[in-house]
Simulated assay, not measured.
Amino acid sequence: MRVFWGQGYEGASLTDLTHAMGITRTSMYAAFGNKEDLFRKALDRYTEGPASYGARALQEPTARQVAAAFLDGSVRATTRPGCPAGCLGVQGALATGDPGSDARDALTAWRNAHTSLLRDRFRQAVDEGDLPSDADPELLARYLMTVANGIAVQAAGGTARDDLQQVADMALRSWPPA
């Protein structure tokens, strides 16, 4: 997971991957299939580990608290000491050629799935009166995901955690009132 996170799909060589896992190529193919299959497993692990803040955020009692937890989690996950900066789900395969298209498509589906989860949670908030009836759950979800993705890109570029937290806090100032 960390090799793909730090180097991206195309930048991660089989030598890098097998070295990080302490296994041979033959063992890697036997255990994980091909590089694309290993990438998908790494993305699952990332989702359950560093990116698990997304699932936790959805459990918050109000839409504003969901948004705050999601953005705070994004800042923490993308600037975590001892881990690659940025987000595997954002930078893992944005700029890939044809050989990396499966990984790029997997990440697009991953980001879209998380946007859909946010949208559904915000629809629930509208139905419960926690968001105004004219709030657009799809737009709110896309807005949050766009800010979080931007935080990830900025983190990968070396922007400090405190500066990124200020961005997250600023984004929340435009959150619709209940």
Rank of each mutant, 00 (worst) to 15 (best):
I151H: 01
L139G: 06
D120T: 02
G49C: 08
Q65D: 08
V75W: 04
A85M: 01
L43W: 00
C87P: 14
R121Q: 01
S74K: 13
A109Y: 02
R111G: 03
E48M: 10
R40H: 07
G86A: 07
A148Q: 14
R111I: 13
A55V: 09
R56G: 08
A125L: 02
S116H: 05
S133Y: 01
D72C: 12
P99D: 08
S74Y: 12
G54V: 11
D136R: 00
T62P: 08
R104V: 00
A68W: 03
T78Q: 12
R111W: 04
T62C: 12
Q59V: 12
L43I: 10
A109E: 13
G49Y: 09
G54Q: 15
C83P: 05
D127N: 10
L94N: 11
W110P: 04
R56P: 06
P132T: 01
L140I: 04
L107D: 01
N149H: 05
P99C: 13
I151Q: 09
R121V: 00
A93V: 02
D134E: 11
A135T: 00
K41T: 12
F70N: 09
G150M: 11
D130Q: 05
A42F: 05
N112Y: 13
S52N: 14
G150V: 05
T79K: 06
A51K: 04
R142T: 04
R45H: 12
D105P: 04
T62S: 10
Q124W: 13
T108Y: 14
Q59S: 06
T108V: 15
R64M: 06
D44T: 11
S101L: 14
W110V: 02
L38T: 03
L144Q: 04
Q124D: 13
V126S: 11
G97H: 04
